[in-house]
Amino acid sequence: MERPPNLAAAVEAAADALVGVLDSAVSRQDLTVSPTQLRVLALVTTRPDLNVNRLAEVLDVVPSSASRLCDRLEATGLLRRVADPRDRREVRLVPTPAAQSLLCEVKERRRRAVQGVLDRMPGRAQHELLLALAAFGQAVAAGADPGDSPARSA
């Protein structure tokens, strides 16, 4: 297969299609939380040291906005604020078991949606996609700052 004249644009279009599949797998009426709230839950699940100020930095919002997001998640029973055992002045954000369950459900729905698309692809194309995505991930990791970690998980 020949390299397209604008490979980056082709990859971006494919990424947009993938995001569309992932988004459609979890329709808004099926969820009790907004996409932003879902992202917050994913972040606090993968970053146990996250507090409201750090969450605001990751989301690129003011701390009061991040705090209101956490207030809404706490009111629905999906998030708790707990004192850090190492420094009681620090308050950590902790997902509840209900949040963990919600994230697992979302992840499973998204996997099924992606599998549905993969099932329509020839086996060889699936294998080539896997190799290409693995190489892409390695290239990202090779150029990443050791202090960076992915901010999007959901």
Rank of each mutant, 00 (worst) to 15 (best):
M1D: 04
M1C: 03
M1L: 05
E2Q: 12
R3M: 10
N6I: 14
N6E: 14
N6R: 08
A9N: 08
A9G: 08
E12G: 08
A14S: 13
A15P: 01
A15H: 07
D16Y: 13
A17N: 03
A17M: 02
A17G: 06
L18K: 00
V19R: 00
V19P: 00
V21G: 01
L22H: 01
L22V: 02
L22G: 03
D23F: 09
S24F: 02
S24D: 07
A25H: 07
A25E: 05
V26T: 13
R28D: 15
Q29G: 06
Q29C: 02
V33E: 06
S34K: 04
S34I: 02
L38V: 00
L38N: 09
L38G: 09
R39G: 10
R39P: 08
R39D: 14
V40Q: 13
V40G: 14
L41V: 06
L43C: 09
L43D: 07
V44I: 15
V44F: 14
T46L: 12
R47N: 11
D49M: 09
N51K: 05
N51H: 03
N51Y: 00
N53E: 13
N53W: 04
L55T: 03
L55D: 12
L55S: 04
A56D: 11
V58E: 10
D60T: 07
P63G: 06
S64V: 15
S64C: 03
A66N: 11
A66F: 09
S67E: 06
R68I: 05
C70N: 05
D71F: 08
R72V: 12
R72F: 03
A75C: 00
A75M: 05
T76M: 05
L79I: 12
L79T: 05
R80E: 10
V82E: 15
A83N: 11
P85R: 04
P85S: 12
R88E: 13
R89F: 10
R89W: 10
E90I: 13
V91P: 14
V91E: 13
R92C: 07
L93W: 00
P95R: 02
Q100I: 04
S101I: 02
L102M: 11
L103E: 08
L103G: 06
L103T: 05
K107R: 14
K107M: 01
E108S: 12
R110M: 06
R110W: 02
A113L: 09
V114A: 09
V114M: 14
Q115W: 11
V117E: 03
V117F: 05
L118W: 06
D119R: 00
D119I: 00
R120A: 06
M121Y: 02
M121T: 00
M121N: 00
M121P: 00
A125T: 06
A125D: 00
H127I: 03
H127Q: 10
E128K: 08
E128F: 03
E128H: 13
E128V: 11
L129M: 15
L130G: 11
L131A: 07
L133R: 14
L133C: 12
A134Q: 14
G137F: 15
Q138D: 13
Q138G: 06
A139H: 08
V140W: 01
V140F: 02
A141D: 12
A144P: 06
P146C: 05
G147Y: 09
G147F: 04
G147M: 10
D148K: 07
S149G: 13
P150H: 07
P150Y: 06
A151V: 15
S153Y: 15
